[in-house]
Design a protein around this nucleic acid. Structure first.
Lengths: 190, 190
DNA sequence: TGGCTTAAACTAATGCCATTAGTTATTATT
DNA sequence: AATAATAACTAATGGCATTAGTTTAAGCCA
């Protein structure tokens, strides 16, 4: 059998393996047993590097939020010509669709109020706040609008993933309709 | 010890116990072990009446969707004077807040495409379609609008429950803002 | 009444899982 | 070369769902 190397894994490698597990087999397959198997060690050894399964899920959540942030940022940079909020919305939905396991991790941190998790999330809030600035809303209204957008798109992706939309009606069209309608409302609010 | 009664439980009693467990201790506490304890039988005995844990979760989902439907219906009947969609939205959020365990069950059926689950859900869709009829949208647009409303409110409640809103900004205000803005958009769309 | 059938309980076992305690062995340091 | 630190390990515990096979209570029918 393979020798017992003193340093076989570290926190980075565990998170990477968790990412691959989430991407390849889904969020619910991110278990210490599966991680250990992927890293060729025994489950208890993981505790030398990370704080159990909750530790893994926290790190995975932060990773996912950062990845989502990157995807959103790219989307804004790319198509500067169109309405940035629409671009943002589609990029968000695209991310959730492409990487469902990681997306699920983003809102399943063991403690959502955790400092690091909140910090990662607030970057996204800032990004959306920037994109919404052209609507010249008041401070409070802008925050309400960001919450609204986040709720809409998260709800949409979450329902879509769970197969909640029974009807045979194009989902991309639904997303565009929803966001555009909300933005119309924001405009008329002025 | 108590005698081994031939008929101690039935499907109804199991579902009722599951409801109490979800309401009292949360959705994740709905386990066969806890159900068996609550009913004073052993876990395997539950299989005489229901199809394992998936069976319990399916029934709980249907129960929850029906309860949600009832709450929404009551809300519409009660305040006929105001905008029914706003009343619906608050009733939805109120339900999710009052019975988080049951609400969670509504979108965690083992198979969301299940006939019975879909049937229960479609009643809610009809209810919302009725309430939105005053906006005189086309057939497709009306369906998009219902999807949008559902996504918004579900996303909102889900994020609120998970503690996703870090900021200290009134959440009811956010909900009202979001729905009102969407409805404004629907109006201006005409 | 007495025996038979049905079915709802049971026990026992399997195989997952996370986690903790305590041990071994490798690597680095003194 | 001895020692300290640490990353693996094994063993054990306790939780969970689930299946197979067994007992026994209840109802029915001759």
């Amino acid at each position: 059998m393979s020798p017992r190397r003193k340093v076989a894994v570290d926190k980075e490698k565990i998170i990477l393996a968790a990412v691959e597990l989430a991407d390849g087999r889904g969020f619910e397959e991110v278990t210490l047993a599966n991680l250990a198997k992927a890293l060729s060690i025994k489950p208890p050894s993981l505790y030398n590097h990370i704080d159990g399964l909750p530790g893994v899920k926290k790190e995975l959540a932060i990773y996912g939020i950062n990845e989502l942030y990157n995807a959103l940022e790219r989307a804004i940079e790319t198509q500067r010509e169109h309405e940035p909020i629409l671009a943002l919305s589609f990029a968000y939905a695209d991310f959730a669709g492409r990487r469902p396991g990681i997306y699920e991790a983003t809102f399943n941190a063991p403690d959502p109020a955790d400092r690091d998790v909140q910090a990662a999330g607030s970057k996204i809030v800032s990004l959306v706040l920037d994109s919404i600035s052209s609507y010249s809303l008041g401070e409070k209204e802008a925050l309400h609008a960001v919450r609204g957008l986040r709720s809409m798109i998260h709800g949409f992706c979450s329902l879509e993933q769970k197969g909640g939309f029974g009807l045979n009606l194009d989902v991309n069209e639904s997303l565009a309709f929803m966001v555009a309608t909300f933005l119309d409302g924001l405009t008329s609010k002025k």
